[in-house]
Design a protein around this nucleic acid. Structure first.
Lengths: 204, 204
DNA sequence: TCAGCCTGATTGACTCGTCAATCAGGCGAT
DNA sequence: ATCGCCTGATTGACGAGTCAATCAGGCTGA
C-alpha cells in the first residue's frame, strides 16, 4: 500500500547503497584498482550481497553509467527542443554537463574516466550510447547552420567533437585537481566555453 | 665503433623490439588486458627478457609515453619560437599532434587512452609532464593576447584546455573507429580545428 | 493467537584461475 | 672461461565470483 517499490521489508534500499558506495570507491581508486570487497566495505554490507544485486563488478559500473548518461541524452533532446537560439541550445548542453559535475563530482569523474574516455574497456562497450550524445550536439550545430547562425563550412560532426572535447577536458582538469570549484566558476566555464566555440562557429 | 648505441653485440636491438611490440599489443588490448607474455610473444622474445630490460610492465608504458611526449613538448617550444602569427603557432602545435597520429596511430592511441586520459593511473603519475604541454599552449595564447591577436577576456589556461581537449577528442574518434584517415583528412582536421578555436579567440 | 513454514535477504570463507615477477641455468661471442 | 644476453618454468599473491549456511519477517491454518 505504500508508494515505494521496495523489495520486501521497509529496510533501506541496499541496492542503492551499494551503487552509491561504488561511486565513491571507483572515484577514489579507479575501477581496476577497487576490489569488490572495497565496495562492500564502503557500503557496510557483506561481500556476497553485491552479487545478490549485480552479476558482476562490471555491471555495477554499467548501471551507474547508463543511469546518468540517459539523463544527459534527455537534456540534449530537451535543449534541442526548447532553448532559444542555437547558441543558447549549446549553452544549455554545456550547462547541464557542468551542472552534473557540480551535483555529483564523484559520479562524473567515474563516468568520464572509466567509460567515456576508456576506449579499450567500457568506452567501447557503451560506444553507441556515447555517440548518441555526439550526434545530438551535431544536430544542433547542423540546425544552426541551416538557420544561418553558424558558418556552413564546418562539418557538424566535427564541431560537435570539438565542443564536447573542450567540455570534457575542462572537467578533466577539475577531476585531476580533485577540486570542487566555486559556483561562480561553473557559470564562468560555461560562458567562456560557449563564447570560444560558438564565436568560432559564427559566420565571418 | 659503429654509430649506434647498442649494448654489446651487433644483435638487433631487443629493447627497441620489445617497446615496439608493446605498442602494438597495448593498442590492441589495452594496458590492463595485456599480459607481459603477450608483449614477449609479439616481440618474438622470451618472457624473462622483458624483465632484463625493464623493471616492470609499468615501466614499459612510462618509457613509451616519455619518449613521445618529450617530442611534443619540444614541438610546442619550437612553435612558440618560430612560427609566424600566434594563430600559426597554434596551428603548428595541432599539426604536430595530428601528424604524430598519422605517423604512428598505435602509439598515439596508447598514449592518449592509457596515459593522458587515465586520471586514476598513469595520467596521475605523469601529471606534471602532461601539464607542461598545457602550459606551453597557454603561453602561446597569452602572448597572442598581449599582441592583440586574441581577445583578452579568456583565461589562457582555459583556452589551452579547450584547444587541447578538442584536438584529443578528434583523435579519440579516429581511435575508436580504428581508422587511418586519408591525408586530406589530417589537413582538414587541423584547419578546421584552428579555424573554430582561433576564430573564437579573436577579438570581436 | 501462535507455531511452523516459506521466501528471499544476507553473510563471508573458499575456490580457482590469472599474471607479474623471479631465478637458476644455457648459450654464444670474445 | 667468463660475461652478459637470453630462456621459460616456477612461484606467490591477489581478487573475482561461488555457495552453503544463517537469519528475519510475513503468511498460513487451526
Amino acid at each position: 500500500m505504500d508508494g515505494s517499490v521496495q523489495q520486501r521489508s521497509g529496510a533501506v534500499d541496499k541496492r542503492r547503497q551499494i551503487l552509491d558506495a561504488a561511486v565513491t570507491v571507483f572515484a577514489r581508486q579507479g575501477f581496476h584498482a577497487t576490489r569488490v570487497s572495497d565496495i562492500a566495505d564502503e557500503a557496510g554490507v557483506a561481500y556476497g550481497l553485491v552479487y545478490h544485486y549485480f552479476n558482476s563488478k562490471d555491471q555495477v559500473l554499467n548501471e551507474l553509467f547508463l543511469e546518468r548518461w540517459s539523463l544527459l541524452l534527455a537534456a540534449i533532446g530537451e535543449a534541442e527542443r526548447t532553448a532559444g537560439s542555437h547558441r543558447d541550445k549549446l549553452a544549455a548542453v554545456a550547462g547541464f554537463i557542468f551542472e552534473s559535475y557540480r551535483h555529483d563530482p564523484e559520479l562524473m569523474k567515474v563516468i568520464i574516466v572509466e567509460v567515456t574516455r576508456a576506449a579499450n574497456s567500457f568506452g567501447r562497450t557503451h560506444l553507441e550510447e556515447i555517440r548518441r550524445a555526439y550526434e545530438g550536439i551535431a544536430k544542433i550545430v547542423a540546425d544552426g547552420q541551416a538557420a544561418g547562425e553558424f558558418r556552413a563550412d564546418i562539418a557538424p560532426r566535427f564541431a560537435s567533437q570539438a565542443f564536447y572535447g573542450a567540455v570534457e577536458q575542462l572537467l578533466t582538469e577539475w577531476i585531476f585537481d580533485n577540486v570542487q570549484p566555486a559556483d561562480a566558476h561553473f557559470e564562468e566555464a560555461r560562458n567562456l566555453l560557449v563564447t570560444t566555440i560558438c564565436d568560432g562557429l559564427e559566420p565571418r
